[in-house]
Design a protein around this nucleic acid. Structure first.
Lengths: 116, 116
DNA sequence: CCGGATCCCGTCTGATACTG
DNA sequence: CAGTATCAGACGGGATCCGG
């Protein structure tokens, strides 16, 4: 591989990684997406109990950001009382592969992570 | 797939994802790791120029955290003046696969990311 | 050259309480 | 049920100057 081609590719990929993190940074976003990967169409309170440790305030905020990034679709159901359901958009679903790799890495290296 | 097995697996994976993000959260960490993936043994100033937009303070801080998480190895070279080189540990290198998937996703979805 | 130390302000986040 | 409001402390991150 030539050095210039390498460096061009390198910078391009680093920018790509940074772009991706722009959307995924945030303490809970990846967890929320992971939860929605495992079961689509979840209500607010379901997500709240599935993401251990998150507060309703944070969940509300991060869901709003994910929605405005077009990763998540919010649907209000006219029930009594009102319920709201969240699901991944096709765009959001495209993250499934990345999330799975993250999960695998986290599983394989749990010991090292905790030890650190 | 049975529902209980599914849910057990689900929670386990969500925890794994959260664990992984514990180590990777931070505005620049993934970018730094990506940079080190593409060329091992880089000096502080090299990383500084390869990660666009980062300040020396942030680089210093995040490198320190990555080091204490055992993802990065720091080596002081007794040159004049002193130079310091950073490289990924084998543990850090195990993230290469994840980073590559992130880069691919970021490349494929650059338009959507920027549009949002 | 490789950072460390300090100042400083804005953002993030948890706890708690409240509303339609 | 699905959020919003408010307060207060923690944290992030830029600028700048300093030391080995």
């Amino acid at each position: 591989m030539e050095d210039n081609a390498f460096k061009r590719d390198c910078r391009k990929n680093i920018r790509a990684v940074h772009d991706a993190m722009d959307v995924l940074s945030g303490k809970w976003k990846v967890s929320i997406i992971a939860v929605l990967c495992y079961s689509s169409q979840q209500r607010f309170s379901e997500i709240l109990s599935n993401v251990e440790g998150i507060s309703n305030k944070m969940l509300s905020k991060e869901l709003k950001e994910l929605e405005s990034d077009k990763l998540v679709k919010r649907t209000v159901l006219s029930t009594q009382p009102v319920t709201v359901s969240y699901e991944l958009t096709p765009y959001g679903k495209s993250l499934k592969d990345v999330i799975m790799h993250l999960a695998r890495w986290g599983t394989e290296h749990r010991q090292e992570i905790i030890a650190g």
